[in-house]
Design a binder for these strands. Structure first.
Length: 550
RNA sequence: GUCUCCGUAGCUCAGUGGAUAGAGCGCUUGCCUCCGGAGCAAGAAGUCGCAGGUUCAAGUCCUGCCGGGGACACCA
């Protein structure tokens, strides 16, 4: 990690605080408590420099002094540093930094030394994280909405791994209970129909065409003997088929789960009984009208909840609580539940259950995502043609689907712009980013064909666009930290587009391969490789291909 | 009715309490003798839903209202 590029905001924050401390010693800054870190953000206007801090404005609150005076006092005491060329102040109380071009140029070598890991962080080192996502029961093909949760969960997992965490991707499912029984019945009805036998498909049953297709296949393979098979038999067949389908769909979307956790195992190993026992001992259970109730109101809930129905069957809440106990027992330092908005209400009850059991559970976090709608849907004789994730990937490609599902913040509704997704040009943000990568690869290929390569003398990088590109590349670790802190993977798509834009601007401004300027060419080829690494890493974390040519 | 998410340019959406609110699409206008034009540049386009409040500073935080999505089972 020692040779990773320095993180600019943290470095500038440290300089600011050193300056403030020195100013206090010198008596030019009133005594006051300094924050642990100073706010540092990219400057909004290039006239002010590269980065700005509002630290003086914050200190004005506690000291009562004029922000401009505080800014001047602090700025005067900021120690010299290799990464800063000069500092300045601007109204009403900002301190501005202009980075040293030589320092920026040096960072290119740091990036090349670390390669794809250049932006990796270490705050997750020696920690275990679990991300649970998708978690659809095997009753049918994955919807686009589940795909969103899949893309979000997997990308978050990728970024957590980049932050040093040992990450487990987990899929929680239930292959018992009412839903699956209905699935078995639904398939049985379709098979009987396929055999020309009477059977009624009720509104309760799954209506999807995929079951008819499966029934056709089964009849072709096994014939009339199927007529005497049990619902259980069909349930097993349907489940196997649906799961194979789901796994294939996830694989297309570049998602590989580490664990498929069966809810049933919580019944089998006595976890449910144990949770009930512990809740009863703790005094949070009571019996009423033949059902077992959880006193959720005593943990701040709006109403009490049934955990065991009067039929003796548990509601979904009990295994949910037991499952999260299981997660906690596995020693994860961070647990993230990626849930669709429709399942969001279950989460507080689980947390209250854990609270009642004496767990703090502060390391369990919820990443809720809103729904997806598909815009520009083609009129089709087959209604709902694009509602499955597979159909959408057939239409526009897996890379485009994955990127589009990650473009919006999770809590916003996502409108999938099918027309834009179908564009195979720069209008399509996925191609825009991939093109930038392919373009750099092409330049590197051309240079290599002429026997040219990158060189370590990056001091030749003097153009402002080159500096802008380096600064942009150095933002990636900040983005990764932001993604983890806010559980918001969409920042990565925004970053990828911005980086691609900066790359294209650099390409316009700076002729890279120029045999008359060998030193400059070598330096620029180094920068090109660094930029290619940045794009490739961003795309890799997003789970999207970084093509060498298109 | 209660809870929750959203409301920012014509459309889809970004926007760690800080300066003159941004991007893509769409629209207008330019740029290939030249490493990939699948690209670049410029322009028009805004009462940040409304009203209060907190703050030196609010698109951002708080309250209320309006509008939209979702959830409110002894379904999962």
């Amino acid at each position: 990690m020692n040779n990773s590029p320095q993180r600019i905001p943290a470095a500038l924050s440290a300089l600011l605080l050193q300056g403030a401390l020195a100013a206090q010693h010198a008596g030019t800054l009133p005594a006051c408590e300094l924050p642990e870190s100073a706010p540092v953000a990219p400057a909004k206007n290039p006239l002010w420099g590269d980065f700005s801090s509002a630290l003086p404005l914050q200190l004005a609150k506690t000291t009562g002094a004029k922000p401009a005076d505080l800014a001047a006092a602090i700025q005067a005491c900021i120690p010299a540093s290799a990464l800063v060329q000069h500092t300045g102040c601007s109204a009403p109380g900002f301190i501005n930094f202009t980075l040293a071009p030589a320092w920026l140029a040096q960072q290119v070598q740091r990036i090349l030394e670390r390669g794809l890991a250049y932006a990796d962080l270490d705050f997750g080192r020696d920690k275990k994280a679990q991300v649970e996502f998708v978690s659809a029961n095997p009753t049918g093909p994955l919807s686009v909405g589940r795909g969103r949760g899949g893309a979000i969960g997997d990308t978050l997992a990728n970024v957590l791994a980049a932050a040093g965490y040992d990450v487990t991707r987990e899929y929680y499912f239930n292959n018992a209970g009412r839903q699956m029984r209905v699935l078995g019945e639904s398939l049985q009805v379709r098979v009987l129909h396929a055999l020309g036998l009477p059977a009624e498909l009720t509104a309760e049953h799954y209506q999807g065409e995929y079951l008819s297709d499966l029934a056709q296949k089964l009849v072709a393979a096994h014939g009339a003997a199927l007529a005497s098979e049990s619902v259980e038999y069909f349930k097993d067949l349907a489940e196997a088929d649906m799961f194979a389908n789901i796994r294939a769909t996830l694989s297309r979307l570049n998602i590989k789960m580490d664990v498929f956790f069966n809810e049933n195992s919580l019944y089998a190993d006595g976890s449910l009984e144990r949770v009930l026992q512990q809740l009863r001992t703790a005094g949070y259970l009571y019996d009423q009208e033949g059902a077992v109730w959880f006193a959720a109101t005593r943990c701040g809930g709006p109403e009490d909840r049934v955990l065991v129905k009067s039929t003796g069957e548990p509601t979904y809440r009990l295994p949910d609580i037991a499952y999260h106990c299981n997660k906690l027992a596995r020693g994860f330092d961070l647990i993230v539940d990626v849930l669709g908005a429709d399942h969001k209400d279950a989460f507080p009850d689980v947390m209250r259950g854990l609270q009642a059991l004496g767990h703090t559970a502060s390391n369990i976090r919820l990443l809720m995502n809103q729904f997806v709608t598909v815009k520009g849907e083609r009129m089709s004789t087959r209604a709902g043609r694009f509602t499955t994730l597979d159909a959408l990937m057939d239409e526009v490609g897996a890379d485009v689907v994955r990127f589009f599902l990650l473009m919006r913040s999770a809590e916003s509704h996502l409108e999938f712009d099918l027309d834009l997704a179908l564009e195979q040009n720069e209008k399509n943000p996925v191609f825009y980013v991939q093109y930038a990568h392919a373009r750099l690869c092409s330049v590197l290929r051309k240079a290599a064909a002429e026997g040219l390569g990158g060189g370590p003398n990056t001091a030749q990088l003097t153009h402002t666009t080159e500096h802008t590109l380096v600064r942009r590349l150095l933002e990636l670790p900040e983005i990764l930290e932001l993604v983890v802190r806010e559980l918001a993977p969409h920042h990565l798509t925004t970053y990828a587009r911005e980086l691609a834009g900066t790359v294209h601007a650099f390409y316009r401004d700076c002729r890279i391969v120029d045999s008359a300027q060998p030193a400059q060419t070598a330096a620029r080829l180094s920068l090109v490789e660094a930029a290619r690494i940045g794009l490739a890493r961003a795309l890799q974390l997003l789970g999207v291909a970084a093509p060498q040519e298109m």
